[in-house]
Nucleic acid binder design. Structure first.
Length: 217
DNA sequence: CTCCGGTAAT
DNA sequence: ATTACTGGAG
């Protein structure tokens, strides 16, 4: 929580996830996989121009056309398939993402349903659970691993869920804090705790970060 | 461990 | 010209 507060006062509230509808969160979660958000925005704009932020229309459009529209996001062949897969799951089982969000099902049940979809791994599932379905699940991504292993709190090669539980066991279980914390981690990862040449001198977390005292991190 | 892949920053 | 990017599957 100390780190969260430090990041919050440095970056301010992030208001994540940036999307107008729940289904747009789902689309963004798929096409942002291992891609910078800049590229995702282009793909999302292409879809919006065709009025395709809609479950039924995405299912209806032919896959080749969909590939062209999301091409700026990279990995477009597999992502088009993945987007079809998760959309089919939503429509077949809940009709819409808004209806999916209303289900009474336990979060772990829902998580397993998402993980059974080809193209949805833990981070994508958790992003959807947290930001589209308002479930209290902490999202772990590459930035989280990098920042907190450098800092000295986790081990770089820990299991995904092990890291997730470390966060869930140690921060206030508030939906908004979960949402903002992950957003703040991304912000720090992009702007300071970069893979190469991290800006440790001006980093808001540099006071207790072990990276400054150990060149092997 | 390798592939998927266009885009913007370095 | 090279690298990194809000991963996941085979």
């Amino acid at each position: 929580m100390k780190i969260y507060n430090k990041l919050l006062s440095h970056f301010g509230i992030q208001y994540w996830w940036p999307a107008e509808t729940k289904y747009e969160v789902v689309i963004g979660a798929i096409i942002t996989q291992n891609i910078s958000w800049k590229n995702v925005e282009k793909a999302l704009n292409n879809l919006k121009n065709e009025d395709l932020i809609d479950e039924k229309r995405i299912l209806k459009i032919n896959t080749e056309k969909l590939k062209e529209l999301i091409k700026p996001a990279g990995f477009y062949n597999i992502k088009a398939e993945r987007l079809k897969n998760i959309t089919k799951y939503i429509v077949d089982n809940y009709k819409t993402t808004d209806e999916l969000a209303k289900t009474e099902k336990d979060t772990n049940i829902l998580r397993n349903e998402l993980l059974n979809i080809k193209g949805v791994g833990k981070e994508t599932a958790d992003s959807i659970l947290l930001y589209a379905l308002d479930r209290k699940i902490f999202v772990v991504d590459a930035y989280t691993r990098r920042i907190f292993s450098r800092y000295g709190i986790i081990n770089k090669d820990m299991d995904y869920d092990e890291i997730r539980l470390i966060f869930e066991d140690n921060i206030i279980p508030s939906l908004n804090i979960y949402k903002e914390y992950h957003a703040l981690i991304v912000e720090l990862g992009k702007n300071y705790c970069k893979k190469k040449n991290p800006l440790c001198n001006t980093c808001p977390l540099n006071l207790y970060c072990r990276k400054l005292f150990n060149k092997f991190y």
